[in-house]
Amino acid sequence: MNVFRLLGDISHLLAIIILLLKIWKTRSCAGISGRSQVLFAVVYTARYLDLFTSYISAYNSIMKLVFLAASYGTIYLMFIKFKASYDHNHDTFRIEFLILPCVLLSLLINHEFSPLEILWTFSIYLESVAILPQLFMVSKTGEAESITSHYLFALGSYRALYILNWIYRYYAESHYDVIAIVAGIVQTVLYCDFFYLYITKGIYGQ
């Protein structure tokens, strides 16, 4: 554990909490892509199956459980409790165009051809593009509430901080995972346009 990794995890946790609080406080999930949230639930489920097979640390297990619970909690709020506020009409990104290539790629490029390893790889690939329905929704409506922007900024920062963590680990521990690194860079690049808008609007727009 290094400071970049810790900050990345905190940023990730913050993003999830911001989203849950936003939906809970406003009793509405307007402007939030249910499709992205479903993809994130798939990502966490596929990746954290190793909760049953390998123990790393209490921190690791607790964080995994929190991410799973928060993700399914978000889905419950969006699709059941505050279903009426869900913005179907603007959430139209075809997620099969993301899922199928990720399935294919994880079968072709992985560290080991075993079920858990393929699921882990699939989750890494899918996570890198899971935000696209949300970004598509924001660009389609041409606006995002400031709280949604904070959510996206925290969520994007998480993988950017992980890149710093990977650079650190490469030099300090000779540890690297090419699949995670490449997918993490793709994931971060997808947020660049949003980061630019968030920073320039945040500073000059108010």
């Binding site: 190793d50 390998s54 991410f67 075993s114 390893e117």
Partner: peptide
């Protein structure tokens, strides 16, 4: 020391 199956990150 690159390990295949131990993914210690979240």
């Amino acid at each position: 020391n690159f390990t295949l199956t131990s993914h210690d990150e979240l």
